[in-house]
Design a protein around this nucleic acid. Structure first.
Length: 264
DNA sequence: ATGGCTGGTAGAACCAGA
């Protein structure tokens, strides 16, 4: 018997500051599983009681004070919680679980990489590339059908940014980042669900800067958030959508939720 | 005019995000 499951990924930019809009989103779309990034909270201060109240009884949390942090909140039980340190510096950027169907769900927050696209001048850029390289090695060892989702901090296609030419030197869309992410994609034979359903070159953004005065007037967006699956799962994804309306709520995250529906 | 804002933490003319 097959079972429908919806999974959302959302870089929330502080789960505590946005607990109200998290509730609004969950009430509106009610995904079975919510993968958050940039929770910005130590595990003992995570608002577990709220998710408990909303029916997300199963929580896998990997946070730290101030920065980063990921959490997977689920109505469905899971097992085998793992935390990978693909950054190799202890930062909380990954949490993975195994769903009842045996599918692995990996929730990741890939580093932004700083301002300068040069690892000599900017160590954070090197850390970002090295993070991808470690994920690439991991991709070669997968034993189960796997979903990897989260804030990848790279907009790979020209149609994933508001202006390809202008962003070629801007971290998130530089050729070296796109090439590095393509190597990861090939290593796991990953399928990009976003672009399976909303095909290139259609406009598809998941992030807009807070600094734009009028988000939609300038529409300077980028597609930084992704959901990828291994080959066994490609035909099990029945739909995918983004929730752009969330970017226009009061005190929004700068990222919007992305959601896929699976038929396991 | 892609940093113009935002959050966390400190108690900064900070730091980090992307």
């Amino acid at each position: 018997m097959s079972k429908k499951i919806t999974i959302t990924s959302w870089n929330i930019n502080s789960v505590r500051a946005r607990i109200g809009i998290v509730e609004d989103f969950l009430k509106q779309e009610a995904p079975d599983i919510l993968c958050l990034q940039e929770t910005k909270v130590a595990d003992d201060l995570f608002p577990r009681d709220k998710f408990e109240e909303w029916g997300y009884h199963h929580m896998a949390i990997n946070g730290q004070k101030m920065h980063h942090g990921v959490a997977t909140l689920s109505k469905i039980p899971f097992t085998d919680v793992e935390k990978f340190d693909w950054q190799a510096n202890g930062e909380a950027r990954h949490i993975g679980v195994t769903l009842p169907s045996g599918v692995r769900l990996e929730n990741v927050y890939i580093p932004a990489g700083g301002d300068v696209a040069d690892r000599e001048l900017n160590p954070k850029f090197g850390q970002k590339l090295d993070f991808f390289a470690r994920m690439t090695e991991w991709s070669k060892t997968l034993k189960s059908p796997t979903i990897v989702t989260g804030d990848f901090n790279v907009a790979p296609l020209p149609s994933d940014v508001w202006n390809h030419k202008q962003l070629l030197k801007v971290v998130s869309h530089t050729p070296i980042e796109v090439e590095t992410m393509d190597i990861l994609k090939a290593a796991g034979n990953w399928t990009d669900i976003g672009r399976k359903f909303i095909e290139d070159p259609e406009r598809l953004f998941t992030w807009w800067s807070y600094r734009a005065k009028d988000r939609l007037a300038s529409d300077r967006g980028r597609r930084l958030d992704h959901m990828w699956v291994t080959p066994e799962l490609v035909d099990k994804v029945v739909s995918h959508h983004i929730s752009e309306y969330c970017r226009d709520w009061e005190k929004p995250s700068d990222h919007i939720p992305i959601t896929s529906e699976f038929n396991f």
